[in-house]
């Protein structure tokens, strides 16, 4: 009974974070900020949902833990690769962007060579 309640709460919390991630995707001004909200909110949202599912179906726990581990390793990796490719092909950044050390260093490297 307690486990059912905990599972339900975790599932709702996970869903809330996933929703906020979607809202963030809509509200953020450029690719990089969208990737940011996309990565963090979906990771925690999915981990919470997995935990909730584990509470409701304890016999699934082992596999849910495995899914969680895979997710924690692969999710940031894919985001990083997306962000890097976006930067390499010169995707426009939001006008609010303050500094871009990467572009500065790349320009310096080109000037020197």
């Amino acid at each position: 009974m307690t486990l059912d309640l905990a599972g339900a709460i975790l599932l709702v919390a996970g869903g809330a974070f996933l929703f906020l991630g979607g809202l963030g995707l809509y509200r953020m001004p450029d690719t990089f900020n969208r990737i940011q909200v996309g990565t963090k909110a979906t990771t925690l949202g999915t981990v919470l949902s997995l935990a909730g599912a584990g509470c409701l179906q304890p016999e699934w726990s082992f596999k849910l833990v495995l899914i969680g581990i895979f997710l924690l390793f692969t999710n940031p990796l894919s985001s990083q690769v997306l962000a890097r490719s976006a930067h390499r092909i010169g995707v426009a950044q939001a006008p609010e962007t303050r500094v871009d050390h990467l572009a500065e260093d790349q320009k310096r490297g080109r000037d020197e060579s």
Partner: peptide
């Protein structure tokens, strides 16, 4: 840190003015 990150970012996303200050730092 993962939980803190999400709460902070949620606050930003829900804020009407969307108070972001993006930058790429080294």
């Amino acid at each position: 840190e993962l939980v803190v990150a999400n709460l902070k970012l949620s606050a930003v996303v829900l804020h009407p003015a969307l108070p972001i200050k993006p930058g790429l730092v080294k």
